[in-house]
Design a binder for these strands. Structure first.
Lengths: 263, 263
DNA sequence: CAGTGGTCTAGACCACACT
DNA sequence: GTGTGGTCTAGACCACTGC
């Protein structure tokens, strides 16, 4: 299964390329290899946490040099799709066994002392099948009225309710999900999605605002109504930029803050 | 000016390494080259926007192969310290001539329509020399009482005041700064810092919270007191992780949102 | 056209982890 | 020791830019 290089740097050969006229569309070999590896990743040829074949093996399989495979894997690693470990191999990234427990949750205690409060205590308030409202459908690339799972839960740190979250999940991919799974799983929710539903979140976009708590929200978080809360609206994507989750979190930021790095 | 490789991969040579006992401290050649290039960047050997020497030139200068220089530059490019442009050269990154006008400002209009409101209108309310309070001193790695510049300004989009910002700058590096500079410069404030003070911001950390506007803040932003605002506390760093600015912004998020990407 | 960064190869050796 | 990823080199050719 050799790729079709769009240009050839092989000494001696000169394979031409089939291209639509007018589209330069030059694609380096390593990008094609990357795409092939990505396909195997999507297809589940290697499961999260498992090792992928060695660079030499992949080079042989795709009939390219190790250096080309290396560059393809380099990009996958920089996108956090795989993790390289010297001497051991390259592994499919997973939300479980992440060094920092929550890869997508950037809320930090002001003290900076992470583990003091231990893991979040989850309380699932609701987990039901509904029909997608227009807004939810748009975010998840569904049609209005399509089945979605709606989850509402509270996360507490050290006994203090800190986050109120609403989640919307495509009904088809998450068929059969229930409150016990949402509450009972030890570890990140995204890790549970991998194990139970084979859904790997690889990327997310967030829109952050400051809002005032309404009466119901205030009651659930045990704060005064109209208290300022951080509203974090997240769309999480699997491979190929397919949206698989819409999430709206309300964070208390009197004891925590959202930490971000710019470069 | 050849580097001292901590290990040698040269065929034929076998240069041993001077290392403190007990410290493995293996550092690849390309990291050493990267550090050397970084030194030249800091020293101002090449100014923001200028081209650095070609890969071949640098390879000759450091007596290493082009591939090694390439890998060093690759890392600098991934850290946004330089920008590569095929066929033209590698250029020192700058906050001016940035494709997106504000590299560190992640506030977007909800409409998504960027340029509609045009560039921000700046109103400088204050620009004075003060002595660093404990908190400011800590953030800027100064001693309490050291001179700092304090700036307060309002940014408006399409005539609507949207951001209220307080800035603290080390008095020594920004000696002589005044309101006219802060208000009059066309383009990002960080670009002005490069041109006028030779200070290049390379990286920043932000702590984000939701807060309620106090009476004064509300008046300046022409909103109701206690309205929820996004508080963005930023420390910006030059080379070598030296903090050069503390900034606290209060963002209206009824018409805009803070956009973030996770991966 | 020459010069720049970008791609690709092939082979050698190093650092690390397991057995 | 063996196998993995990581580093380094040398040389060839490709794509893009501007003279």
């Amino acid at each position: 299964m050799a790729p079709t290089p769009s240009t050839s740097a092989d000494s001696g050969t000169a394979s031409a390329d089939i291209q639509s006229p007018g589209t330069p569309a030059f694609s380096p070999l390593y990008q094609q290899i990357k795409a092939l590896i990505l396909q195997s990743l999507q297809a589940g040829e290697w499961k999260p946490g498992e090792a992928i074949p060695s660079e030499m093996d992949l080079a042989a399989r795709f009939r390219v040099s190790q250096g080309t495979v290396r560059k393809a894997i380099d990009e996958l690693a920089s996108e956090n799709l795989v993790v390289r470990r010297q001497g051991k191999g390259t592994f499919v990234a997973t939300h479980a066994e992440q060094q920092v427990q929550y890869r997508f949750l950037k809320l930090m205690p002001d003290s900076g002392d992470l583990g003091s409060a231990g893991p979040a205590q989850r309380t699932v308030l609701e987990c039901k099948r509904v029909r997608a409202a227009a807004e939810v459908a748009r975010a998840l690339a569904l049609r209005p009225g399509d089945p979605v799972i709606q989850v509402r839960r509270v996360l507490a740190f050290g006994g203090v309710p800190t986050i109120l979250e609403d989640l919307w999940l495509p009904g088809n991919a998450f068929r059969g999900i229930n409150s016990e799974q949402m509450a009972g799983y030890h570890g990140p929710t995204y890790a549970m999605f991998e194990v139970e539903f084979g859904v790997r979140m690889v990327r997310a976009e967030e829109k952050i605002r400051a809002v005032g708590a309404d009466v119901q929200q205030a009651a659930l978080l045990k704060i005064e109504p109209a208290s300022p809360l951080l509203s974090v609206e997240r769309v999480a994507y699997t491979y190929n930029d397919v949206p698989m989750e819409l999430r709206r979190g309300l964070y208390r930021t009197d004891t925590h803050h959202y930490r971000n790095e710019l470069s």
